[in-house]
């Protein structure tokens, strides 16, 4: 996983509540057995005017000019500004894979769905939850300021606005540690907890042997 320390990036606004993971990456692209290459199909049904299929060359497809990410002013955006309950629905990790592959590193919203939230952090994305009034203010600023960029500092847990103001944000200590160091949490679990897991398993097997089919 890519480490995240600090990122200054162009902000793209997606002004829509309850964006579900089916919308982020439609089901036909879930047939892939790879982790990469989902970027061209991010928001496929919003971005293009035709129905996409896996393995297709997307460069010749008809573009929906009304969709925000197709507007030239948001080209190269790495910060996505979204509305409440972003990432609801299916547990597909293809959703953060597609967002990351497209170039996003930060998503700011008033709230996120639980499974998506977990999945995103495991793929080097920083998800920032801010209150609705602040998110409203950012939507307003982005709309009225071409080239609006935010400087997101994970170490200090601050978003620096071009206006000079700083917004503090919360992040779990463990998620922050993994993200700053680009750490694979499987390796961490095995290094720190192998012994504890084995001990737990021995007790668990003794008290509830029916949970172990090889008992």
């Amino acid at each position: 996983m890519k480490a995240f320390i600090r990122q200054k990036g162009l902000v793209a606004p997606l002004d829509r509540a309850n964006v579900d993971t089916d919308l982020i990456i439609p089901k036909q692209f879930l047939k892939s057995i790879k982790r990469t290459g989902f970027g061209p199909n991010l928001f496929d049904e919003l971005r293009y005017l035709d129905e996409g299929y896996p393995g297709q060359d997307c460069s010749n497809r008809p573009i929906n000019p009304d969709f925000v990410l197709n507007q030239p002013r948001y080209e190269g955006a790495s910060v996505l500004l979204a509305r409440k309950n972003f990432g609801c629905g299916s547990s597909r990790e293809h959703a953060p894979w597609a967002l990351e592959d497209f170039g996003f590193r930060v998503i700011i919203a008033p709230s996120f769905a639980d499974i998506f939230f977990n999945n995103a952090f495991k793929n080097g994305l920083l998800l920032i939850q801010l209150d609705e009034a602040t998110v409203d203010r950012l939507f307003d600023a982005v709309e009225h300021t071409p080239g609006y960029r935010l400087d997101v500092d994970l170490v200090e847990q601050k978003i620096l606005m071009p206006e000079g103001e700083a917004i503090d944000f919360e992040v779990d200590a463990f998620r922050k540690y993994c993200l700053e160091n680009g750490l694979d949490d499987i390796g961490l679990t095995l290094t720190d907890n192998s012994h504890a897991i084995r001990e737990f398993e021995t007790r668990h097997r003794a008290s509830q042997p029916w949970l172990f089919r090889d008992a």
Binding site: E93, I115, N118, N119, K122, D185, I186, N193, I197
Partner: peptide, 20 residues
């Protein structure tokens, strides 16, 4: 719990899930 693919790999490798 419904989980993502990174968590599928984590459970396969460690028999545990990281949760709050």
């Amino acid at each position: 719990h419904g989980i993502g693919t990174s968590e599928v790999e984590h459970v396969l490798a460690t028999q545990c899930l990281i949760q709050r």
